[in-house]
Design a protein around this nucleic acid. Structure first.
Lengths: 228, 228, 228, 228
DNA sequence: GATGAATGAGCCTTCATTCAT
DNA sequence: CATGAATGAAGGCTCATTCAT
């Protein structure tokens, strides 16, 4: 088992995260279009704010354009529809998030550390980007209606990564091999997610990041103690 | 301490649940209007289905009317607007849920049992009423836009009850008095909620209720082991 | 001329007024239906208030029913449509008004007196029944849309009577035979009507009836002085 | 006079008319938007026709759009609601009318002439713009419901101007200083208004403008002869 | 490349009217 | 008789999307 622990095949998490992080590398930049790039990013940020505030369904293209300081019809130069615009945001943001996790998680030694990192990064990212967090946790995540495959996959990767980390840790012997990875991942993700949502809705706890740490401690203890 | 265990002051949960369950006792029924009552219930169920399927924002009154087998304008005999119709559903359903929990939880001996009951009832109720669950967990819960106080309160009571149960258990000495009730409640609720949402979105795990039990076991072990 | 002054043929006004006043004698009362009669009158008064307040086009049957203390569908026992209800009011009221004028005007000696009576009665009636006056002067009179012949006729009789009085006075030698009856009637009616409308809209002058008298004096001087 | 006769203080009418005429000078035109201006004017004229025909309350936006040859939603590019559209018409038209009166009335020598001008202009304007006249005299003027301050003021200015002219004439010694300006104005306005309304409703007299002149003669004789 | 202008499709809501009881 | 209950028809308004300039 120990040998196996070093087998590349076992590093499920890396594989998943790498693919997830690659999601946004969909084209080189045309230097001529840098100004256009900038506009597009402004647009995405403006859209994030408006979607977060009004919800995707009720958000108006006119409001987004105003927020971005461009004309409504210009939006259609970048995205063919409101939906496409809305979906581009999680695709990019999540890919970026996964990329950051990859960079910071790679040097770490244990899965336990990576698990902690992942959970804490999630809250930190949310705390730093509350509009985006609202959009992700309150709009996109729960949306039954989103069928766009790339969005679905990007969101699902979140859970897959946690499951992979738990499994990888088990295989490496960091905790019981009998651990129910799926169930444990549900607890980890659900707890973090719930805390973030509560913060988004009620601003409680006041300091989201600070409150996360002890909870992660408690959650990791659960992992350590995990039986079947 | 043991005597205190029976002191009314300690039974926070009862107080909260009783008030929450009373939410729907807002009027006796006029026997003459039984037919009307029936229509109204049909309407609420039809609305639940449509809201669950399309989301509140995108749901059409015409679809609801068709689903209920009545005319659109008849809906307005019962509710003054789409919003009001949408809000009536969680208000009633949650009150009913709290009422059932009160009835089943009262005879129990320990808070631990009540905690388990509450969490398991949540998944059972969701499994039995998937449309309603979709509406609650995917639409109403995450909605930033709902400001109607009664809805807000009914939803918030969910968390309040879990916190109260944890606290009551601590005071009765069922677990460490140092337990961080709020954090623990976050974990409990988040885990259950996350599992339900995952089931609603992906039908995984296949048997929601069966999958819940071991997770609740694991969660309760967490409570038992809880330190500060 | 004097003989002619007493000739019945000359008394145009009487003929017109008598026919106009007869408008409401459209049926004897069935003693059994006295209660129903009462209800109907209540309804008409309630409708007058609501029509005066909201305008005929915007008035709602529901409001009228509420104001009358009956059910909406009961209204349809009396009148087949909102329009019919609205039109019944001026038909009755005007006939009643013409009847009163006939009674009070008959004993008078001169057309000048009758003219004065008619103009003053118009303001008095308006002052005493402001709701009805609003309905007549602000809704029915200016309405292009009313095509119901009986209403049209009842309203038109108002002008016809004034013209007839002017003509009769001329024939009786009370003023110049060269008087332009139509033009003079326009001035008389327009002035009175305008004063009433101003009062209805702005409550100015405060005392409508008191303000009318000097104006009628001035108007009659005009008649006296009338040339072609 | 003699100079004093020209003293600003006395020229009440000028002050009122100038302010009233200024109502529509609410912005220079952006030359780039000339096409848009044109559309807007077309729209206003189409709306005038439809409002005149069906009444404001019963007029349909769809009909107005069809009449103007544009789409319904385009109307909302110009005016936020049917009411706003309806109110813009009298505001503009009346300001324009007051402006024309100012231009033509200024060079005149006597208030008597101005009074005649004003009354005759009113009928001429109505005869030339029967749709607008219908809207003003049959819909807006009598409407109890219009509370928009600018409309109210524009309409009220009509009466205020007549009163001012009568007063100014009295002060200049053109007629008795004891004249009851308010009552006289009521007669003048009421007569003209009544004649116009009669013409609008029944097309009688056939030639409105021609019929007006002798009536104004008669009315001015009344002013000349006015006592208290 | 950017946008002002225009629109069609659609949806919520209102309300006069009907009818079974 | 009286009415509660139900509805069809209609209309104001919104808004994502298109397109000529």
């Amino acid at each position: 088992m120990l040998e196996k622990a070093t087998t590349p095949g076992r590093e499920r998490w890396r594989e998943i995260v790498e693919r997830a992080a690659a999601g946004y590398l969909d084209g080189g930049r045309d230097p001529k279009q840098d100004r256009s790039r900038r506009r597009q990013l402004d647009l995405l940020e403006a859209a994030t704010r408006v979607f977060a505030r009004d919800g995707i369904a009720k958000a108006k293209m006119a409001d987004i354009a105003a927020e971005a300081g461009i004309s409504v019809s210009s939006i259609y130069d970048y995205y063919p529809s409101k939906e496409d615009l809305a979906y581009e945001i999680p695709i990019r943001r999540l890919a970026q998030f996964y990329g950051e996790f990859l960079a910071q998680g790679e040097p770490l030694r244990t899965m336990r550390q990576r698990l902690r990192l992942f959970l804490e990064m999630a809250t930190e990212y949310a705390a730093r980007n509350p509009d985006w967090a609202r959009l992700l946790y309150l709009e996109i995540w729960p949306s039954v209606l989103i069928e766009e495959a790339r969005v679905r996959r990007a969101v699902d990767d979140f859970g897959r990564i946690v499951v992979a980390l738990v499994r990888d840790g088990a295989e490496r012997g960091e905790w019981s091999a009998d651990i129910n990875a799926y169930q444990t991942a549900t607890i980890l993700m659900g707890s973090i997610t719930h805390m973030i949502i509560t913060w988004l809705l009620y601003r409680r706890p006041e300091d989201l990041v600070a409150a996360t740490q002890p909870m992660v401690d408690q959650l990791l203890r659960l992992v350590d103690a995990a039986g079947p």
